[in-house]
């Protein structure tokens, strides 16, 4: 049984990874869409993305579309793996009882 992943388990970061996990490998979500999907503010989402990026779970791409800046986020293979392991861990807790401290 894998242990608790405290980076992913935080509520907003769990939602971010859940949304990104739906994407096909080569695609990304725009910052504004991700914000509405997880129900976070700009600053809050930015801070949590920073944490996930430092952990190597997401890749953030900034570019200009015309004159407008655009930020796109995609999960890394390590991020997808960590998310899948964390979801499996949560399921295991439901099946077998509370995790040890």
């Amino acid at each position: 049984m894998n242990g608790l992943n405290e980076v992913i388990h935080q509520a907003v970061r769990l939602k971010i990874m859940a949304a990104l996990n739906v994407l096909s490998p080569e695609t990304a979500l725009e910052f504004t869409r991700l914000k509405s999907l997880v129900g976070a503010t700009d600053g809050n989402l930015g801070a949590h993305l920073d944490t996930l990026e430092k952990a190597g779970y997401v890749a953030i791409e900034k570019r200009f579309v015309g004159k407008k800046p655009q930020t796109r986020i995609r999960p890394t293979p390590a991020g997808r793996r960590a998310f899948a392991e964390h979801v499996a861990y949560l399921r295991e807790i439901i099946d077998t009882g509370p995790s040890p401290p």
Binding site: L4, L14, V22, R33, L37, R91, P100
Partner: peptide, 27 residues
């Protein structure tokens, strides 16, 4: 940090909800 089955179920429910909303938004 300890997670009890109730917290785990709530987290999984949130995951499923976000996945469903993301699928719907892309569709």
């Amino acid at each position: 940090m300890t997670i009890d089955p109730k917290d785990a179920a709530a987290s999984l429910s949130e995951v499923e909800s976000v996945e469903r909303r993301t699928h719907q938004a892309i569709t």
